[in-house]
Design a protein around this nucleic acid. Structure first.
Lengths: 130, 130
DNA sequence: CTGCATCCGCTACGATACTG
DNA sequence: CAGTATCGTAGCGGATGCAG
């Protein structure tokens, strides 16, 4: 097709970025990736480590991650069944930019919180009197 | 404060990262940030450029971004009213890691799609036939 | 131990209409 | 032109029970 290779990043490209960020943006996803970044983990190990996650969410999260080829699911057909999850090479490569964003988050966390506080304060009495 | 850079990334740190990624992960957010990265834009201009976004979502997105100090809202009290949105310094600093992640998305887009296809194919007849 | 299906509630999202 | 309020929908997310 007549591909109109754009000189810069198009909205279309941003769409794909949105898609990835939507997946990575799911709070549980990066927690799983971060945990798996420390080495392969079993299902219950992940559930135990990631406080607050439900079994359903963990299942859906790992399946989504596996579907995207970010993690590898290794099921051992034994009794009791053992399932290990590990980052793939693709997942590890994703870990880098994610960590970069993570460092930004940590570095500017205070600024963002302050901005929120300021915004909140300005909107508490916006249009109101004392 | 005692910045004793932690030995590794803790779960708690990841929580904050999740928070930021949750905001950035909202597909509309990065589109707005990307658009604003090209220069200040008016409300309708953003709505026109970002195809598919509703007025409600744009308002909410822009307000959330402003609340976090990522963008600056400049309202001109005239008839008709004119409101310009522009990236703050904080927003521009966020643009860097986001673009890094964006390049990852573009670079590995095909791989992810292939992984999805493979996963989908394997699960279409998983457990079926011999 | 792991995974899935169901029920149920909640919040996020989209379209419309109205105000300034 | 910019923004808000309301309504309706739909997908997300949590708890439970069951199956391999």
């Amino acid at each position: 097709m007549g591909v109109t290779d754009p000189p810069a990043h198009t909205i279309e490209s941003c769409m794909h970025v949105s898609d990835v960020l939507a997946r990575v943006g799911s709070k549980w996803s990066i927690l799983v990736i971060a945990k798996l970044g420390q080495g392969p983990q079993r299902f219950n190990a992940l559930k135990r480590e990631i406080t607050g996650i439900s079994q359903r969410m963990l299942t859906l999260t790992v399946r989504g991650l596996e579907r995207d080829g970010l993690i590898l699911r290794t099921a051992t057909p034994s009794i009791p069944p053992r399932v290990d999850y590990a980052l793939t090479d693709l997942g590890r490569s994703l870990l880098e930019p994610v960590q970069a964003l993570g460092e930004w988050a940590i570095a500017h966390r205070a600024v963002v919180e302050a901005a929120r506080h300021t915004f909140d304060a300005q909107h508490r009495d916006a249009g109101s009197h004392d």
